[in-house]
């Protein structure tokens, strides 16, 4: 019963632990063979910041790590004319590069700007939640490598998982809830 249960992979993110060290960025690139060659638009995950805010000496700075939200209601899948963007067995949004005609509509439809054209495969690319690692029981590379474990990864359908426990105990929010995308990234508040 448990083994056949459908998974709902999610990430719970505690941005307040992030100190912008870029380990997630480099681990992702090495894991997934993404050679940006200095191109700042080539990345599957990212850390945003509005920079140092305020006036000396009253300052603050926040960092917000993010990536493809693995939406349960993904606009990119709806708009894809060739079904290159699709939901896999676990309900994760994936791209079948062989079907992608690089029309770019999915890039425009994504409210999170999570997609880019890969200079390597020449088709659209984005975070896969490292589904090749999930398949062998590992965590996504960004989760695994993070010094402070900002990201917690797990199955929300399992009430015993750490992600379930975290979301039961803490206040959280999702990014751009009004777009109706039902993201799988939950930010603790």
């Amino acid at each position: 019963m448990t083994e056949n249960r459908k998974k709902r992979w999610v990430m719970v993110i505690d941005s307040r632990k992030c100190f912008d060290c870029k380990a997630c960025d480099v681990a992702c690139k090495r894991e997934n063979g993404i050679e940006a060659k200095g191109n700042r638009d080539v990345y599957r995950n990212w850390i945003t910041s509005r920079g140092i805010e305020g006036t000396f000496p009253n300052l603050k700075q926040r960092f917000e790590p993010s990536q493809c939200q693995q939406c349960a209601n993904p606009p990119c899948v709806r708009v894809c004319p060739t079904r290159a963007s699709h939901l896999d067995r676990d309900g994760l949004v994936q791209i079948d590069g062989r079907r992608c005609i690089v029309c770019g509509v999915c890039i425009l439809s994504c409210p999170y700007d999570a997609r880019f054209k890969s200079p390597q495969t020449k088709v659209i690319d984005k975070c896969t939640f490292c589904n090749h690692r999930i398949a062998v029981g590992k965590q996504p590379a960004c989760v695994d490598t993070c010094p402070t474990k900002v990201r917690v990864f797990g199955d929300l359908n399992d009430p015993e998982s750490e992600v379930s426990r975290l979301l039961a105990r803490h206040h959280y929010f999702v990014l751009k809830p009004k777009s109706g995308t039902q993201p799988s990234l939950f930010y603790l508040s």
């Binding site: 060290c21 380990a23 960025d25 480099v26 681990a27 490598t145 010094p147």
Partner: peptide, 25 residues
Amino acid sequence: KRLEPEPDFPKSRGMMCARGNAGAA
């Protein structure tokens, strides 16, 4: 291909920083 963190190594608490990851190249 990759240098992944060793989860049981006590000193690093099972992490690998950006530089450690980049070292693979």
